[in-house]
Nucleic acid binder design. Structure first.
Length: 168
DNA sequence: CGATTGATTGTTTTG
DNA sequence: CAAAACAATCAATCG
């Protein structure tokens, strides 16, 4: 049911393979552990693990304070930027549809909310599609990070500190 | 006029 | 291991 008709868009080859494939070429170390954990989590969701309504909602305190901007983690001359997550990819697609279905909506905050809800309703298979893309992206990112780490180990005396980074 | 917030979740980063 | 931060996006708003 609800089997999304194949859009004959097999550019990504068999992406509907679900978790069967799951072949993360990564093998860093601690990172791998974390990644594996993620997989476990997904499995949990796939099996449909109840709910967890208690979603800490700090309302606006932490969010406000956080402020996505503010390079606190300076250092980053070569620090690879974080690639968009699966959710973001989904957003890209969803955004277009959402705008078409809701041309009245203007901002993304509304879309984001809608996406979040829909995202939760999406099944693992559907999400996997985006996960796959994100995974690929991360693979590239991993390489970049390897160099970044290397560079750091090689000689990170200046910490890529160009100018003055004395607090703000 | 410019920069920032705002909202979503997922990965990244660092301690 | 855990928590904080940030990733895109774009409209609206503050200064």
């Amino acid at each position: 049911m609800a089997k999304k008709a194949p859009k004959s868009e097999n550019d990504r080859s068999s992406s509907t393979s679900v978790a069967s494939a799951k072949s993360p070429p990564t093998a860093s170390n601690h990172q791998m552990v974390l990644r594996m954990k993620s997989s476990e989590k997904m499995k949990k969701i796939a099996q449909g693990s109840d709910v967890s309504e208690s979603e800490t909602r700090p309302k606006s305190k932490s969010r406000l304070k956080s402020k996505q901007k503010k390079k606190k983690t300076k250092i980053d001359a070569k620090m690879p930027k974080k690639p968009p997550t699966a959710f973001f990819y989904f957003l890209e697609d969803f955004r277009k549809e959402f705008q078409e279905q809701n041309p009245d909506i203007k901002s993304m905050r509304d879309i984001g909310k809608a996406c979040g809800e829909k995202w939760k309703t999406m099944t693992y298979e559907e999400k996997v599609k985006y996960y796959d893309i994100a995974t690929e992206k991360r693979a590239e990112f991993d390489t970049a990070m390897a160099e970044y780490n290397k560079r750091k180990e090689s000689g990170e005396d200046e910490e890529t500190e160009d100018d003055s980074e004395y607090d703000e």
